[in-house]
Amino acid sequence: MISEEKQQLLELFAQGRKYYKLMNFEEALKTFQKAREIDPSDGPSRVYELRCKHYLKNPPEDDWDGVFTMKTK
C-alpha cells in the first residue's frame, strides 16, 4: 500500500501529463510544481517542469506528437 502523499504525487503527475499532451504547458507546469512541493526530489516531475518551461518559450509545431527532442548536447 502506498502512502496518501505518494498517491497525491502520482495523481498530480498523471494530470500534468494530460495537460502536457494537450500542449497546455502553463497548466502542466503548475501541476508538476505542485507535485514537487510534495516531493522536491521527484525526478520525473522535474524533467517535465523543465520541458514545460522550454515549450512555453519555444512552442512546438501544431503537429507535435508529444515527443521531446533535444536540440543540443
Rank of each mutant, 00 (worst) to 15 (best):
P44D: 13
W64N: 02
M23G: 06
K53A: 09
K57T: 12
E61K: 15
V47D: 13
C52P: 04
V67R: 02
L22H: 07
L12P: 07
Y55A: 00
A14E: 14
Y19M: 01
D65W: 02
L10V: 04
E27D: 13
M23P: 03
K53L: 12
N24H: 08
T72W: 06
L29N: 00
T72D: 10
L29F: 05
Q33V: 13
S45T: 07
V47K: 12
A35S: 11
L56H: 00
T69W: 09
K57V: 12
K21R: 07
K34Q: 15
E37W: 01
K57P: 05
E11P: 01
Y55I: 03
Q7H: 13
H54V: 00
A14S: 14
P44Q: 13
K18D: 10
P60C: 03
L56K: 00
N58H: 08
I2T: 12
Q33I: 14
K34R: 12
K18V: 15
Y48C: 02
E37N: 10
D39Q: 13
E4A: 15
L10K: 10
F32I: 09
L29D: 00
R17G: 02
T69S: 14
H54L: 00
L9E: 09
Q8F: 00
R36Q: 09
Y48P: 00
K71H: 07
G43A: 14
M70V: 11
K18F: 15
D65R: 07
K73C: 08
R17I: 15
S41M: 02
E26G: 05
R51I: 03
L29A: 04
Q15F: 06
A35I: 02
R46V: 08
K21D: 06
S3D: 12
S41D: 04
D63F: 10
Y20H: 10
A35G: 06
F13E: 05
N24F: 04
E61W: 05
L56R: 00
H54G: 00
D65K: 09
Y20L: 08
L10Q: 12
M70G: 10
F13W: 03
A28Q: 03
N24L: 09
E49R: 11
Q33S: 13
N58P: 00
L10F: 09
R17T: 10
K57G: 07
F25A: 07
E5Q: 15
A28R: 05
Q15S: 11
K73V: 02
F32W: 11
E49N: 11
Y20E: 09
K71E: 14
F25W: 09
N24W: 05
W64Y: 07
S45D: 06
G16S: 08
M1T: 11
K6R: 11
K34N: 14
Y55T: 05
Y19G: 04
K21H: 02
S3G: 14
F68L: 03
D42S: 12
G16H: 08
